[in-house]
Amino acid sequence: METIFQLIAILALVVGTLFSVVGVVGFIRLPDVYTRLHATGKVGVFGVVLLLVAAVVGQPLGWGRGLVLISFLMITGPATAHAIGSAAHRIGLPRQGADRDDLLCASKSKS
């Protein structure tokens, strides 16, 4: 049983680190604010959640504390992405190569 937990912890640790790295790479490679928020806001949160899972399973951190931290991250991560995305949209930061824009159509039909 102990070794199974250790294996799960190692797996979660490796995958979590991988996703955190992908988040940083995405932040550098992607072209504009909105796509970068996809990389940091979600892949980053996913990586940290997996690292927390590893900490809960592999170390005596305690299930309760781990669960509280994970749910806190799941609530705050998307909220910050909303805030930054909305602010960027309001000051009119440009998008790179938008294929489709319902918001532009909506504002045009209103005015």
């Binding site: 490679r29 992607l30 796509t35 790179q96 938008a98 319902d102 918001l103 909506a106």
Partner: peptide
């Protein structure tokens, strides 16, 4: 190739 086809959907 970064295959992004971004857009805004309502």
């Amino acid at each position: 190739a970064l295959p992004i086809k971004q857009g805004i959907v309502a």
